[in-house]
Design a protein around this nucleic acid. Structure first.
Lengths: 120, 120
DNA sequence: TCCATATTTCGACGATACAAGAAACCACCG
DNA sequence: CGGTGGTTTCTTGTATCGTCGAAATATGGA
């Protein structure tokens, strides 16, 4: 990944409402959530949420598809992976013992199969 | 990690100059780099870089110590780990096969021992 | 076609962030 | 004590971002 899109992704996430929406979609999994459902769970106005999702979408962090009257948004796990890899690129000056915990945190976040929190 | 400090960290990184500085420190390892050395490698004015490092420092992403006339900055790998864990928290709705690549990317970034890029 | 639901776009205001010059500050050395 | 290199703080002009009300668009059903 290059610098510009990485900055765009980070800028998209550097906002309380957008970060909450993104994490909700990350936690929701590949099935995604309807825009209205996200707005309801986060308790934000639909137009405000739409603006947030638009920013995340332009940054490539989420994707959308139409399903009837609803628009379903899903996290782009591949983009997320690229962003994390970019942050850690060539890290630690060849001292794996420094960044081993980083990798451990990454694998620990999802492999434990914690319960989903619907109310967020 | 909670929402507020996570947003602050992401906002600190959502800037081309600051992101470049942070990645340089991440790649430099625990020994860190002097502020002037960072400014020289990134070709930015000292005062501009100082402002960038100040933002990163306030976000908790880097730490500083004085060494003679220079100030040495180092990446805070623990803060970095917390931020990545926060982004991936409870991800994938219990589908480890989705986020396994995320963990793989994390461990691949540093365990391969690539060479440092001094010019970056 | 007409209506209700779901979502996006538009317009405008207030707030915040950025870059750079100038000056101040700190630590070492003669 | 004065000078120099290294770094930070201050100030200012400019630009960008975020939110919300109101209106527009898209879809499905009676």
């Amino acid at each position: 990944m290059e610098m510009k899109p990485a900055v765009a992704s980070l800028a998209a996430l550097a906002h309380e409402g957008r970060l909450a929406a993104f994490r909700l979609l990350v936690q929701a999994g590949p099935m995604g959530l309807a825009a209205g459902e996200v707005a309801r769970r986060l308790d934000v106005l639909p137009n405000t949420l739409s603006a947030s999702l638009s920013v995340l979408s332009h940054a490539g962090l989420i994707a959308s598809r139409r399903a009837g009257r609803s628009v379903i948004y899903t996290a782009d796990y591949d983009a997320m992976r690229e962003l994390l890899a970019f942050l850690m690129e060539d890290c630690c000056a060849g001292k794996p013992e420094i960044c081993a915990p980083l990798a451990a945190a990454a694998s620990g976040a999802c492999s434990t199969g914690r319960e989903m929190n619907p109310a967020q």
